[in-house]
């Protein structure tokens, strides 16, 4: 068990669906929002977030913590994030195991890290300091990647597992990202799942990707692919009743289509959990 709330199935709250979500009940159980979009002074976004929060649990998911950078931690950023968390009272706060900029500049991209002992010590120290500053534990997400550094001496899954254990943080396991990176780097996604400590996984992400021939690109603009649903089922079998979120950021569909995708995740999760219990009884 993770010790985190059992939220069920959620979706990312995007501007296209603000009116629909505010207009009445939906069949999703919770929403994840991009923290930075709401780390603002006022206006419509915050008003919508406050109204949605009255009816649903919210998870804050950031893209700019820059946890793996060698730049100093941005304390102003962290304090604004902390203020938003105080306002929203999220189920948890997450960001990505990556770096997004260096030298005071920001790429606004989730750049991979070299998986070395030096990087591990650096990231673990920063996660601890972030958690101290925010006064809460955070979850870190595995990113899709398209390159491996010559210097990498650890696998990504070992690196992620060790960061979580040594910094005492959670894991947001993006199943689509594992699939994308597995194809781009030639590893077995099941190997990745097997290496992740079960008690650390607070949340799953699911999303669509694009096949560009030579590689897969994590585009979040398609339905979840069948192969990723299969991997998700394996993840549920291993990690259990973990909160699951559908990310859909480009070519955003009508609300009903997004809701269907979330319901499909719920059905697969129920089936996998039920089968798992049956196996246990039969064993």
């Amino acid at each position: 068990m993770t010790g985190q709330a059992v939220l069920g199935q959620g979706v990312g709250l995007r501007r296209d669906h603000f009116e629909r979500v505010l207009s009445g009940p939906t069949r999703v159980a919770w929403f994840e929002v991009i923290s930075e979009n709401f780390m603002v002074k006022g206006g419509r976004p915050l008003e919508v977030l406050d109204r949605v929060r009255r009816d649903y649990p919210i998870v804050l998911h950031g893209v700019s913590m820059n946890i793996g950078s060698t730049d100093p931690l941005n304390l102003d950023y962290l304090d604004r994030l902390g203020a938003l968390a105080s306002r929203v009272q999220p189920a948890w706060v997450s960001d990505h195991l990556c770096w997004t900029g260096v030298g005071g500049h920001n790429a606004h991209d989730l750049l991979p890290l070299p998986y070395t002992e030096e990087t591990l010590a650096h990231v673990v120290d920063r996660v601890r300091r972030v958690q101290d500053r925010l006064g809460r534990r955070i979850a870190l997400e595995n990113v899709s990647s398209y390159l491996t550094y010559q210097a990498s001496a650890l696998t990504e899954w070992d690196f992620l597992a060790q960061v979580a254990e040594r910094a005492d943080c959670g894991i947001l396991l993006d199943v689509n990202n594992i699939f994308v990176s597995a194809r781009n780097h030639g590893f077995e996604p099941e190997t990745y799942l097997a290496a992740i400590p079960a008690g650390r996984v607070w949340q799953f992400h699911l999303a669509g990707h694009s096949d560009l021939g030579g590689y897969l690109l994590d585009t979040h603009d398609h339905p979840v692919r069948d192969e990723v649903w299969t991997l998700y089922r394996s993840a549920v079998e291993r990690f259990g009743d973990v909160a699951t979120l559908i990310e859909w950021d480009g070519n955003i569909p009508a609300w009903d289509r997004l809701e269907q995708e979330s319901l499909r995740a719920g059905a697969i999760q129920s089936e996998a959990l039920h089968d798992g219990r049956s196996d246990a009884v039969g064993a």
Binding site: S69, G101, V102, G103, P114, T116, A151
Partner: peptide
Amino acid sequence: MPSAPELSRAQRNLW
């Protein structure tokens, strides 16, 4: 001196 000199070099190179 950054706390992670190899990482710092890699990041500036990649940037």
